[in-house]
Design a protein around this nucleic acid. Structure first.
Length: 934
RNA sequence: GCGGCGGUACCGAAGCGGUCAAACGGGCUGGAUUUAGACUCCAGCGGCUUAGUGCCUUCGCAGGUUCGAAUCCUGUCCGCCGCACCA
């Protein structure tokens, strides 16, 4: 029979909604508050989102069944620039953007509306909500909200948060370098680049080589090599600008002027000069005082640094190659220049650059391997190099150590300036070339603050992490986080309360919004004008006098009480990508704003979703929206397939084959449950019934432990796959004569167990079993510890292995139609001997000693016993595991005779070893009956 | 480079000192059932052997500790993720 999972889903979702089962209000029960980062509403939800949400949902349902009053709320994130940008692109009819919308299923006539950012927010939050409801999420939708000033109450909440942080000194103003697009006039993050992902501003030093009137600022990442400068390079083909920079006359390339301006230098252009005009000048090394010539080099780029470079042929392959070129051409100024060595490095002689060029056969500046040579020399020198005698006070120290000292000295002596530069080319999506700008008056959250860090660390230490192995990552991140630029000039959001030209940046307005869920329903009843900082102070912190707020006291107290009831958050789950930003901020901002008892209690982190083991990628077509998978496989099948795929921080895989198989298994389980519940059974009480009970209850025990840790794969394996497998065996073993009691127990427990994973089909089964209430409100399966008995497992294992062995023997002996099979059960003395040897062997491996203490008890069968002892001491792994007494083993085999007869299709007899004169009988070992086939 | 997590059979993955040729799921092979498929059931999926046994090879690679190692130690190689101004 094929089940209509979709129909079931709709049916039970309607009931849940009608009965408001997920609408949670404070009560006397202990609470459990779960959240997950709200999605950014610029598109449809995909299966990546949903794995994360599903983990929360399964946990919410589990905790509900464990007797907690559970709250799982949800909201929408609209802060930031992507929606804004996308809306603008629609307004400009940008084809790529229009196409993206069409791919999501929107028709041509739908598109114009997307010119409005608000339309994006409304559309995608509505669609996402539909999807999540169809997915069976146990969300309390009454608390839904959206961020930004589209939601004035939320904006007021953010303003309160920032005002409070500022009062505590955690919001500070400053400047910092960013990758900047000069066309869009905005910072360009990694995701918004056409080229240059991963490039970050690097500090370059501009070492001031001077003529009498002019400064040649040589841009370098290796200032320590200043001791080995033989000359300065300029590119004769470039145009240089002579400009007054911070009061000095500098020579720099054209593009450099804009960079200097953007990096807070005072720049006045005087005139432009061809690079070739500069060649031949003499400049003085500010550190050594040596005068060196300015020479031409075509490898010098206008876009990097200043277009002026110092030449260190001993340690820089480019410089050596360029110098050699000039010398070969016979340039007079270059003739007498010799490399000056200043770094001693293992494995190289005096001039590493010269050596490497020779090794790689580099003879000129056009050689493609120059970059490689540079890296080679640089890495080696940086890590193992020591400065030579000609470096004055730095002599004898390592390069790594000297570098920061030298930089500090040069800066202090004004012999060098600083410039931020991008090592690789960065191009904005708008196709403009980016450079580094120092943004002024930027507001920061001061995550570098030592005290603040300490509190955050304390919070982390007290927190439960799912799984705990992320702890190391969190510790690293909390320590590493520096001040975070928390304001933006563009995009949607909330204005910074004290400086309206800034908006609160999108990650920074999302750190403590969990606190908004408990109070939102109360806030809605308060007129907007009354919602202010004082009100939040009272509701969240209990500070201030409610009389001053002009609001009905009952409303205030309800809000305060509800906040205190739900807070802190017990479990917040997200993908592992948010550890280094959102989740870290979440910790920081909580500890800054709330008293310790309201700090977060638990964070869950999970891996990504792959599709057919491949990383999701829209452009490669490896992508599925949530609605696609639900439509194909239904909510229940999707849920259990993904959750059973993997756990901890491993990626889970969406595999249609697995989903297909899961669907079949669920159908089978459904049929089984309805068919066997409360009927068809026998009275039971046999060993095998107890065995099945043992398997069931120990599985439930393990599954419960796993659920508490959100280890869903383990839970599903124990609670579902293992139990199904054992059930199959049980059915075979009893020839279908299963105990009614056992079956009833099993169906109930398993239905309850599956409810967090496949809630719809479980509701259906539950109701068909004749239960009156909804399964969501039922108690989680309580396993009965009395029914767990490992002995039963051993005995049954013996039985199963015996069957295997008999079949094996039949095959090997080539007996197709046996008449009689006799099983001999090992005598009790063997059981005792095994136990004894097992104990002894841990203490000593001396055969004599073991023998001595064992033989005391086995004098009457010295020969057999000593043979066994010898064998066991030699290889303790051969000591049989089974420790059941002969009687138990015997009884179970006798019980199984009917079954064995049926399977083997011949007579079967079971005899105790000591009751037989057959030679074979002596081979019997505990847990391993001897077998005789006739 | 820095930090985190990993490398186990065809794939995913469990195991974390003896019960390990290695759970479980997918896949595959053979057989039963079936009009045929799907589903289901049984047997099997390192090699050679064998009255249920024994031996060899295998848990990234190389060493070591131990009576005994997939599991502990050391070294080494490889993969994935993050390294920020932002969803």
């Amino acid at each position: 029979m094929s089940l209509d999972f979709h129909k079931l889903a709709r049916k039970w979702q309607r009931r849940w909604k009608a009965q408001r089962v997920f609408e949670s209000d404070p009560s006397d029960k202990p609470k459990f508050f779960l959240t997950t980062p709200y999605p950014y509403v610029n598109g449809l939800l995909h299966i990546g989102h949903t794995y994360t949400y599903m983990r929360v949902d399964a946990f919410a349902r589990f905790k509900r069944m464990r007797g907690f009053n559970v709250l799982f709320p949800f909201a929408w994130h609209a802060t930031g620039s992507p929606i804004d940008t996308a809306a603008k692109k629609v307004a400009e009819n940008e084809p790529g953007q229009l196409n993206a919308l069409k791919l999501m299923g929107f028709k041509d006539e739908d598109l114009p509306a997307f010119k409005e950012p608000l339309h994006w927010v409304k559309t995608f939050s509505r669609e996402a909500k539909k999807d999540l409801m169809r997915y069976g999420m146990s969300i309390d939708w009454r608390r839904e909200f959206v961020t930004t000033d589209l939601n004035p109450r939320y904006s007021k909440f953010i303003k309160w948060q920032f005002n409070t942080l500022k009062k505590k000194g955690f919001v500070v103003q400053g400047e910092h370098p960013v990758v900047w697009c000069p066309k869009e006039n905005a910072p360009v993050g990694d995701h918004a680049r056409a080229e240059g992902e991963g490039e970050t501003p690097q500090e370059m030093l501009l070492v001031k080589f001077k003529t009498d009137g002019h400064v040649f600022p040589c841009a370098t990442f290796r200032p320590e090599t200043v001791f080995g400068v033989t000359n300065v390079w300029v590119n004769p083909d470039l145009t240089y600008v002579e400009a007054v920079v911070d009061g000095e006359h500098w020579m720099v390339s054209e593009p450099c002027v804009r960079k200097l301006l953007d990096q807070k230098h005072d720049v006045k252009e005087l005139k432009r000069r061809k690079g070739s005009e500069l060649v031949g000048a003499k400049v003085r090394n500010p550190v050594t005082g040596v005068e060196v010539p300015v020479l031409p080099a075509f490898f010098v780029s206008a876009d990097t640094g200043t277009g002026v470079v110092m030449s260190v042929p001993a340690h820089a392959p480019f410089d050596w190659a360029a110098l050699k070129e000039l010398q070969d051409k016979g340039m007079p100024d270059a003739q007498n220049l010799k490399p000056v060595s200043l770094i001693q490095v293992e494995g190289f002689g005096e001039f590493p650059a010269v050596e490497v060029c020779r090794q790689l056969s580099i003879a000129d500046t056009k050689n493609a391997r120059l970059e490689e040579a540079t890296q080679l020399v640089y890495k080696k020198e940086f890590h193992t190099g020591k400065l030579k005698q000609n470096t004055g006070k730095y002599a004898g120290k390592g390069v790594q150590e000297v570098k920061p000292l030298l930089i500090a000295d040069l800066k202090a002596e004004k012999k060098a300036a600083v410039m931020f530069e991008l090592v690789g080319k960065v191009v904005c999506r708008c196709l403009a070339r980016c450079h580094v700008k120092i943004v002024d008056n930027q507001w920061f959250l001061k995550y570098s603050d030592a005290q603040w860090k300490q509190s955050a660390m304390k919070c982390l230490q007290q927190m439960k992490l799912y799984p705990d192995k992320v702890r190391g990552q969190f510790e690293y991140v909390l320590d590493w986080l520096q001040d975070w630029a928390c304001t933006r000039e563009v995009g949607l959001g909330t204005n910074l309360p004290w400086d309206k030209h800034w908006k609160v940046e999108s990650l920074s307005d999302s750190t403590i919004y969990n606190a908004f869920y408990p109070v939102i329903q109360h806030l809605k009843k308060i007129s907007l004008g009354k919602v202010n900082d004082k009100l939040f102070d009272y509701v969240f912190l209990g500070v201030g006098n409610p009389d001053d707020l002009g609001v009905d006291h009952k409303l205030l107290d309800d809000a305060r009480r509800e906040f205190l009831y739900w807070y802190p958050v017990d479990f917040r789950n997200s993908g592992k990508d948010l550890v280094q930003n959102h989740l870290a901020f979440y910790i920081f901002n909580h500890v800054a704003l709330f008293p310790e008892q309201l700090w977060p209690k638990g964070i869950g982190v999970n891996g990504y979703v792959t599709i057919g083991s491949k990383k999701m990628s829209k452009s490669k077509g490896i992508f599925k929206t949530l609605r696609q998978v639900i439509e194909t496989f239904s909510a229940d099948v999707t849920r259990v397939s993904i959750l059973s795929s993997n756990e901890e921080m491993n990626d889970v895989d969406w595999d249609s084959e697995v989903a297909e198989s899961m669907k079949a298994k669920l159908e089978q389980w459904y049929d089984f449950a309805l068919k066997f519940y409360g009927k068809n059974g026998v009275s039971g009480g046999r060993e095998i019934d107890r065995w099945m009970e043992h398997q069931l209850h120990s599985a439930m025990r393990d599954a419960t432990v796993a659920m508490d840790e959100t280890l869903y794969r383990t839970a599903i394996q124990r609670g579902f796959f293992d139990v199904q497998r054992h059930l199959k065996w049980y059915s075979r073993r009893t020839a279908g004569q299963m105990s009614q009691q056992v079956l009833t127990d099993l169906v109930e427990l398993q239905t309850l167990f599956l409810a967090p994973f496949t809630p719809h089909v479980c509701e259906e089964v539950w109701s068909k079993l004749g239960k009156s209430g909804l399964i969501v409100n039922e108690k989680w399966p309580l396993f009965d510890g009395n029914k767990v008995n490992v002995q039963l497992e051993q005995v049954e294992d013996t039985m199963a292995r015996t069957l295997d062995d008999v079949q094996q023997v039949l095959k090997l002996a080539k007996v197709e139609h046996p008449k009689l099979i006799t099983l001999f059960v090992a005598a009790d003395w063997k059981v005792l001997l095994c136990r004894k040897v097992k104990e002894l062997v841990v203490q000593t491996r001396d055969i004599g000693q073991v023998m001595k203490s064992v033989m005391v008890d086995f004098k009457d069968r010295a020969q057999e016993a000593s043979a066994l002892v010898q064998k066991f001491v030699k290889d303790p792994s051969r000591i049989p595991l089974a420790s059941a007494h002969q009687e138990a083993e015997f009884q179970n085999l006798v019980d199984a005779v009917a079954f064995l007869k049926e399977v083997l299709n011949c007579s079967v007899e079971v005899i105790k070893e000591q009751d037989s004169s057959e030679l074979k009988a002596k081979q019997a070992m505990p847990g391993k009956p001897a077998i005789l086939v006739k």
